[in-house]
Design a protein around this nucleic acid. Sequence first.
DNA 1: TCCAAGAGTGTATGCGCATACATTGCCGTT
DNA 2: AACGGCAATGTATGCGCATACACTCTTGGA
Lengths: 366, 366
Amino acid sequence: MTKAPTVYDVAADAGVSIATVSRVLRRPEDVRASTRERVMDSVRDLGYVPSGSARGLAARRTGALGLYFPGFDAMDDMGELSDLLADASPSYSFVDDVGAAPESHQFNLYFDEVLRGAELEAWRRGFALTVAVGRGGLAADAARDMAGRVDGLLVLAQSVPDAALEQLARRIPIVVLASAAHSGAFDSVTVSNHEGMHALTAHVIDDLGIRDIAYVAGPLDSPDDNDRWAGFESALLERGMDPGRVRLRRGEFTRASGRLAGAYLLASDAMPKAVICANDQMGLGVLDALNEAGIRVPQEVVVTGFDGIEAANLSSPRLTTVHQPMELVGRAAIQLMQRRLDDPEAEPASIRLPVKVLLRESSEGS
Amino acid sequence: MTKAPTVYDVAADAGVSIATVSRVLRRPEDVRASTRERVMDSVRDLGYVPSGSARGLAARRTGALGLYFPGFDAMDDMGELSDLLADASPSYSFVDDVGAAPESHQFNLYFDEVLRGAELEAWRRGFALTVAVGRGGLAADAARDMAGRVDGLLVLAQSVPDAALEQLARRIPIVVLASAAHSGAFDSVTVSNHEGMHALTAHVIDDLGIRDIAYVAGPLDSPDDNDRWAGFESALLERGMDPGRVRLRRGEFTRASGRLAGAYLLASDAMPKAVICANDQMGLGVLDALNEAGIRVPQEVVVTGFDGIEAANLSSPRLTTVHQPMELVGRAAIQLMQRRLDDPEAEPASIRLPVKVLLRESSEGS
DNA sequence: TCCAAGAGTGTATGCGCATACATTGCCGTT
DNA sequence: AACGGCAATGTATGCGCATACACTCTTGGA
């Protein structure tokens, strides 16, 4: 790891000026083939790697995009490095895991897929992708730091305070993901939460003939949750049913809170004929509770979720749900960003992606 | 999005020199409180965001770390932005998904978790994390580009050609993940593949009393696969069994190839009493094949996997497997990188993380 | 044969910041 | 009263590259 060679070193080695070295790397066709090869040889010989910082500074663009997620709160510390290096603990251990309760990851899957889509699309367009996960009060600082090192910032709903977001928007393009709230002010990508839940609810009522329905909602501050409830509500209203009379439980979008909701329903006088949940995790939790109580799904009660996470495809019975194109959300966001970078004056645009209602065994005869 | 304010603008606004502005941001305690506040006010008023490029250039460090993954090959294109914006397609659709075959994601889960661990740990240490996914022949270029913009590079085994890797190592610190091959040359993080598979195999032979075993291996070029096979092999040898006589099928680490392997075993004269698979995906595929053929697991055949992915916890029967601490791999890698950055002259270190043998229903009485 | 028009290359500059070093002002000492 | 020492701030420079502009050398047409 000797001192890193620079354009000057390469130029000297190849017997050309630094401008030519730069051209060989950025616009090879502007340089005569023989010169180009000579320079490339020097580049290889010296192991030259252009400095991203210098490039970014001179070109006024970094070639990187940022993706900012809301944070996982639970962040238990791990032992420090010294522990790991010095570790004399056994290299393996046995765990009797028979009969363990399945608790799949929290919301992670959602982010993972969005991230993958964004990464994919960013790469295709020649951008690097820098990710950051917001942590409570520091979100604004972290976002600012990030804003300084990228050409554009993708922000997941609720991960950055609005005030901070507007500040940043004065400096670099912002695309907001999964938040209907910001439509109009920023470019944004959302999914058809409303329509999806509406369609699913209509299916339960019209096709399955069920009118005795309970609803398991998510946190009040979730825009997704609001949209889904609105879709559910409108389906009821259209059919002359009163949403106010629906048994409503509110959970945390986790499997555990779904179990609680399920237990609550079990303890009530009469089970509803259908339990519509605002996301899959809670739907799976409800399934857990019902399975445990020996209630047959879907024969006695129909259960549905929302999101289309993998775990909903592996449960028994498999969970009917509304699939969100999460990877597409990430890709679409990058596309919007590209458009914004190409034309900074364009009107803010909003992409609303379609969802798929996946009818599975938790709502159908097997 | 007017012209971005710089230190000069802030300095002028606050009536100080640029050095003072810089100090306020980097070493606030070196500046008198009254001055500091005046500068901070200007920073806020102007919406100043320091340029990461300029900082990186002047300070000779970017404050970012890179994470380089081998690529997903299948990269089907999506419609372009114009399609999405103009899209008049319905906002939802119904899909009859009853009875669909569960095919969980490919290897993604593995990367997702490593990434999460790395992100977490990088954040804690004040680094940004830039991710890139290698794409075939361009891997070397992409890695080089990345190397120019970060202070250190984490590389997953096999994602960058060795020659390119050594080039880059001359410029910035490299930490290799999940590759025993590079130990000694680079800092590296691995898991106890050998020991884990050895322990699992010993359990099958000694505790379950099974000696009629088939092995479903992964690709030949996978170091993980090699290690696991070696662990399996050594367990047999220790017990006087001949690894050469084990029925061996080689797959692609995918569920589909696991199904194929299962079908092959079913078609053979006699089923073995245990099928040990080099990863979970293939183990799940074998389960699929056996379930379909009506073979009872574990009563007639024991099946095991390796990795500890979530899907292996949701199958029926749930899959006995060896859990890798994937998130820890990511975190440990960042810790190693930190150590290397702190002390560039340190001897290359290797962290080998312990695994957990998870005994579940696919190998035990329920 | 001479010149205009590129093609190819070099020179000079600035991107925005961190920081070494210089300068100023203030306080306590002698 | 003069001075040393330190805290606070300013001045000047360079980090490594892209690029506008200047310059030289060919080449083809008149």
